[in-house]
Design a binder for these strands. Structure first.
Lengths: 178, 178
DNA sequence: CTCCTTCCAGAATGGTGTTCGCCCGATTAC
DNA sequence: GTAATCGGGCGAACACCATTCTGGAAGGAG
């Protein structure tokens, strides 16, 4: 819906990605939306032979650009209709190490160290308020945790993985390189 | 790392998932980790014939339990090494509608309406501080936006999709149903 | 100019996804 | 208690696709 800005789909050997050319970005973009496409369809979409596409995908995987291919499950269907972001405050640094044990809970989907007025940001998906309570209890069990602040997601309007495209208007080259 | 709690992998027709039995959860769990496995390997892992597994996966897709299969890209490799959560405050409700236009930016990965001292939570992945500045400018362009608070992710310790498992100790049945 | 590297197209093949028909167990009605 | 009906899984056949190999063209470096 934004007005004039263009998404970079064609870019000649951009900065961060070492050997990532336009074709790689195009292929990655398609697979990031739907990885079930056959190499035949994929090759037709990007304008290359199936063999060439196969080789590129293999290298993208090997290089870690494509970290994996996963099935995206539905939270509510999995019995976890509640999504929340939990900001955790700890006393001093380094306490985040013990909080990594939270990875063992399938309810915890993301753990980030953060700047701002909080130390750690958790993304959790739980079955019920009671389940959230139980999870928060585990967080408080960790030594050094001072407090938490929970943001419940009332509705999710967009939720997707890393996108291949980059907005041209936000690109580094446009305004920084002068 | 948590001590005693068990993850439910086997559960007889739990509440939220209507027709989801143990086999469906097991299959979903495997595919959520790696969707590249062949039906042969998958069938061997869950203890079913390839044909039966195929039929179940087809139904899981049709039912929306498996929403899609996507390639997980690497942020830094895609030229977007910076991850941030942006909390947006608006004047009054209903302003979130216009903010949905942010979906057009590949930098925006998630948009949630939220409770707490904020209205909207965005998950954004950008190339540079300058790109983040440009994106924030777009947010402020939206009518009714009072302010934002940005939490930069210093390091990501865990980032994954919806998990099939549910922690037994957090389950509704354990303490609510008595 | 020549060699080297890199990349892509075309063809062959082994594996796999997909479908069909049959069989078994559970449920229901009589 | 018996029989009919339904749902689900198994085994096999077929078609499709992933994967590999070979050849050839384009771009650089010496």
């Amino acid at each position: 819906m934004p007005k004039g800005e263009e998404t970079i789909g064609l870019r000649s050997r951009a900065g961060a990605g070492r050997g990532l050319d336009d074709m790689d970005r195009k292929i990655s973009g398609v697979l990031a939306r739907d990885a079930t496409v056959s190499y035949s369809d994929l090759s037709a979409e990007v304008g290359l032979s199936p063999a060439a596409v196969h080789e590129r995908v293999r290298r993208l995987r090997a290089a870690g650009v494509i970290r994996g291919t996963t099935a995206d499950l539905d939270g509510p269907a999995m019995g976890k209709p509640m999504l929340a972001f939990v900001h955790v405050n700890t006393r001093g640094w380094g306490k985040t190490r013990s909080l990594l044990s939270l990875s063992a809970f399938p309810e915890v989907e993301e753990i980030h160290s953060a700047t701002g007025d909080t130390c750690l940001i958790l993304k959790v998906r739980v079955a019920s308020p009671h389940a959230l309570e139980g999870l928060l209890a585990r967080v408080y069990d960790v030594e050094g945790v001072i407090g938490t602040k929970t943001y419940m997601a009332l509705s999710t309007h967009l939720e997707r993985g890393v996108q291949a495209g980059v907005t041209a208007a936000f690109d580094v080259d446009d305004h920084v390189r002068d």
